[in-house]
Nucleic acid binder design. Structure first.
Lengths: 136, 136
DNA sequence: TCCTTTCACTTGCAATAAGCAAGTGACAAT
DNA sequence: ATTGTCACTTGCTTATTGCAAGTGAAAGGA
């Protein structure tokens, strides 16, 4: 979770992954970003209804952990937009399998948007690529 | 989660999946079962050190939700062993992608056992197949 | 017989996290 | 001057975690 001398509960790569995204909300935010959402209020308006204080703390954690970046899209009042890093975007295959799993095993689940299963992590990095450019 | 008139926080298949396994421990137990563990004390002895009360409640939930079954392997004192149903075993691809993700993005993560990435959900159903047979 | 162990849990309790409602500060629009 | 929006923060209540200890049934040994 932290950057150095991190103390994971075990070295198991699965367990480590769960320390990053093993909760009820982190992957919901990642999903929203995969679907093109990028602002605080976009995340708030998702049907699951994430509490606003939890949203703020999750965005902070995900950023600290390198899964997403935020940058201001306007000054005065500063407003941020969030976008996925490669580390965050690489969770897309996990989301895709979870969606498949639900569709196979749970009745009454909804459909993902068209093209969801065909998407690749690289497709999600437009914003990240821009940020890399402007950084030089 | 429940069997009828279930009330998920949304119809999104990802969100529903997280209501089944979106916490820090459920997938750890599923992982252990994928690795051939089947008894309470096996799960307890895993390096992550799951608290025993949480283990008991997770096993109960996972069984209620149809991801695993338990059956006595001895009477007097009754002792149970747990094994995956197809619904539980089908989470293996999710575990595999999470492991890959950690290996790619997190330094110092351990290696999964040999053959882990080649395994398929069907390979995990020996016990389940037996249970189906003895049921008739 | 009595004592010690093991297994699979349960119980009690303190600490942490989640969830709800309301508030805040910067600005824009009316 | 008032209202509204956005991106949060604060306060508080409830729920979940995590730790330690306890329980009951039986097996094994002295």
């Amino acid at each position: 979770m932290k950057t150095d001398t991190q103390t994971y509960r075990s070295q198991c790569p699965l367990s480590i992954a769960l320390e990053y995204i093993g909760d009820k909300w982190s992957l919901i935010i990642i999903r929203d970003m995969c679907l093109g959402k990028s602002r605080y209020c976009d995340f708030q308006n998702s049907p699951e209804g994430i509490p606003t204080n939890i949203l703020a703390s999750r965005l902070r954690e995900l950023e600290e952990n390198g899964l997403l970046l935020k940058r201001p899209y306007q000054g005065k009042p500063v407003r941020y937009e969030y976008f996925l890093t490669p580390k965050g975007a690489d969770l897309l295959p996990v989301l895709q399998h979870l969606v498949r799993w639900t569709q196979k095993h749970v009745d009454g689940a909804g459909e993902p948007p068209a093209g969801f299963f065909e998407a690749k992590p690289e497709d999600l990095l437009t914003m990240w690529a821009q940020a890399q450019k402007t950084e030089r």
